[in-house]
Nucleic acid binder design. Structure first.
Lengths: 195, 195
DNA sequence: TTTACATACATACTGTCTGTATGTAATCTG
DNA sequence: CAGATTACATACAGACAGTATGTATGTAAA
């Protein structure tokens, strides 16, 4: 069987990111040796360092992948909804649901800022989760739902609170209660933003 | 010159945490070898592993120190103010001022959750920054300033937004503008919480 | 279809770093 | 001041990231 170079490349590349994803999510970036990643992926360290400049670069690819998938799911809720307000509430619900996934919590929320540095991490987020949220808030202001205000910084703070809510709920003794509290707290913010 | 064991211990201990503080703040936990910490502190690795179980343990001590000092400064604003409302605003201002310090940003906000793990980090925070904030919010509810609500989760989300605000301001092209935006965003939340 | 090259990997090695084991000097106790 | 304990220093072992080099596989022009 004769495979093209592209096929070879993309299949080992995705084997590496898939393996990395699972391992990094389960045990955290620094607890996973590259050796284990390549063994899990069924290749060798040579393949890893052919496709990625270093371990961090692999991690960056994993983070981008996770973030993109996550954002796609959440933003689908917004576009599927009849109007913006209900869409945003549905997205909030989806956000908190999806954040129970350790892939999100460990990779995107815990390790990414420290491993990639806050600036790189922020750049990735800006193209995914943060981008969608900023858009939604901008639209909400345009439609008169929210009071006119600069949404750039607001979006960052809201996203940060959302991330924290996810972590709090995951770690809580009573997740249902924690979730209700979080929704109330976030709701009060939303109320303060209304036009 | 004959020093007591306690003096020897505490002075090398603080030499180590002081050196660690500066180096971790400047370059991040994983970029600083223990060898450099002990050289800066003027001791050897033997001293380090006598006083701390491992590198992480030293880092934990540094985090606790930083967090305690930081919280003391912020909470001083609350107690110094004539009433709770103005105290909380003064504390907010102090918080954002102090967060320009890279010791806070790199050590407490970026590295700590990833290095110590989110749970350990949370436990430390709960005894310092988060503890004070929770207290303040509880009092605000008791005094009728804020609407009755569970403050535990709320405090976490607010603190997270505050942390993010600090990072955003530090990284912004126009920090003054970013700060104004952040204060507006946080103010709108506060408004939504009022009784 | 063969030759020349590029891409995709594998293997072997090196330097760095953390943590440990062991040795030595300083302090404390009876 | 002898013995025990504490505080450190030195030497070492294992693990890991990254690199250098070798090999196999695919590609493309002559």
């Amino acid at each position: 069987m004769r495979r093209s170079q592209q096929d070879r490349s993309s299949s080992t590349r995705s084997a590496l990111t898939t393996a990395g994803r699972a391992l990094f999510a389960a045990r955290g970036y620094h607890a996973v040796p590259t050796d284990e990643v390549v063994r899990t992926a069924g290749v060798t360290r040579g393949a890893l360092y052919h496709h990625f400049t270093d371990k961090k670069d692999l991690f960056r690819a994993v983070v981008t992948e996770v973030e993109a998938e996550f954002t796609a799911k959440v933003s689908a809720e917004v576009t599927a909804a009849p109007d913006l307000a209900t869409g945003m509430f549905a997205a909030l619900k989806a956000f908190l649901d999806l954040c129970s996934d350790p892939e999100i919590r460990q990779i995107a929320l815990t390790d990414a800022p420290a491993v990639l540095g806050w600036n790189d991490w922020r750049a990735i987020e800006a193209e995914h989760g943060l981008g969608v949220l900023t858009e939604a808030l901008t639209r909400a202001v345009e439609e008169g739902l929210l009071a006119p205000q600069p949404v750039g910084v607001l979006a960052r703070l809201v996203l940060s609170a959302l991330n924290e809510a996810a972590l709090v709920i995951a770690a809580a003794e009573d997740p249902a209660q924690a979730r209700a509290d979080a929704e109330q707290a976030l709701g009060s913010w939303f109320a303060g933003l209304l036009a």
